[in-house]
Computed example of a mutant assay.
Amino acid sequence: MRTALVTAVAGAAVAFLLGLLTFGVQATVHPHDVPLAVVAPPPIAERVQAADSAEVDLRVVSADQARTLLADKEVYGVLEIAPGQATIRLNPAVNPSGTQVAQQVLTGVAQGAGLPVKIETQAVSAAERTAPLAASALLWVGGMVAGLLFVVLKGRRLRLVSSLTAAVLTVGSVAGLLAWWGVTFTAGALGFLLAVAVSFALLQAGLFKHLGIRAMGVLGLLYLMAPAVAGQVPELLNPVYRAVLWSWTPFRFSTEGLRSLMYGGSIGTEWWVFGGIALVGLVLALAGKEAQADGPDGVVDVRVDEADRLPGTQRQHTA
């Protein structure tokens, strides 16, 4: 009876935790202070500022400032209003969900001013919108499966060789898959993919070394959180999820970094993040002893040598 109750409660608790960390992120999405830029003559600019709300942060700036903000990804879209015309400018390197919100809001502002709307942006396919997050998740899965099999097959030597080889091969398979979908990468983007894959593989190798198969409890949970959190716009997330999950998840940095490099942008923070992850993983992989593997039925093999047998195991001699 006790076992039945404990397992039932554990199942319910895990379901609650996963729901909280995954579906809860999407269920609580609501825009707040989404940054947008507007270029407009003074009379229209005053009306635009009056339309500001808690959902959006409309910044009235000059044309040069607006384009700089958009290029630096500090705003999700720019509305330029000229006599008889309104132009919405979008940056493909910006999170697609943020771009969609920007287009909807700025179109409403232009239509409220009674102006026809023209949208200027680089055409982005569905595969290109999917690629950054998909590549990040697949690189994590490749390293995780390689590390898990190394433990299951009772590997003891060349763990780092296995991890690094898995990282290189996974990058090749991901790049090939995305190329099949019609997504091409620059050399810089491929180099960043390799850096991400290596850092993931080293971290996973270190955790598997010290925790054994129990590391899947950590690595699996991180993977389940990735698509729900990393692909979201921070201004759409519940503030609690933004602070507790989005702010630190490595998938967010890999997704944003790859998206920037795909469209000619540059990155800086991301290199430091994945360099740090790789360093931590390398230290874990080189330090300490292997986790003790459990034998059948949870019995640990203590490897008693023949010379150290207990007296009771020796053959008794009769007088």
Rank of each mutant, 00 (worst) to 15 (best):
G84Y: 05
W140S: 00
A86T: 12
G84F: 08
G147L: 08
S136F: 10
K118P: 04
F150S: 00
N91F: 04
I88V: 11
L106V: 03
L148M: 13
T87S: 09
L79D: 07
T121A: 15
V152I: 13
A126Q: 12
E80H: 10
V75M: 02
G147S: 14
W140Y: 15
Q100F: 03
V105E: 15
T99Y: 06
G114T: 14
T107R: 09
V161A: 13
G114K: 13
W140G: 01
S97P: 05
K118R: 14
A110I: 03
T99D: 12
Q111V: 08
V161G: 11
N91S: 08
L158V: 10
P132G: 01
A82V: 10
L139K: 09
A123R: 12
G77Q: 06
A110V: 01
L133K: 05
Y76R: 01
G142H: 09
A113Q: 15
K118F: 13
V151L: 02
G142A: 09
A126N: 13
V141S: 12
T99F: 05
L106H: 13
V109S: 00
R156D: 13
S125Y: 04
L90A: 00
S125F: 05
I81A: 06
S125G: 15
V94M: 06
P92I: 01
A82H: 08
A102G: 07
P116I: 09
E128S: 01
Y76I: 01
V75A: 08
G98T: 07
N91K: 03
L138P: 06
R156N: 11
P132S: 02
V101E: 10
V117C: 12
A135R: 03
N95A: 09
Q103C: 00
P96I: 03
S136D: 14
S125N: 04
N95M: 07
L115Q: 05
L149N: 07
V141Q: 15
T87A: 12
A134N: 06
T99R: 10
Q104G: 14
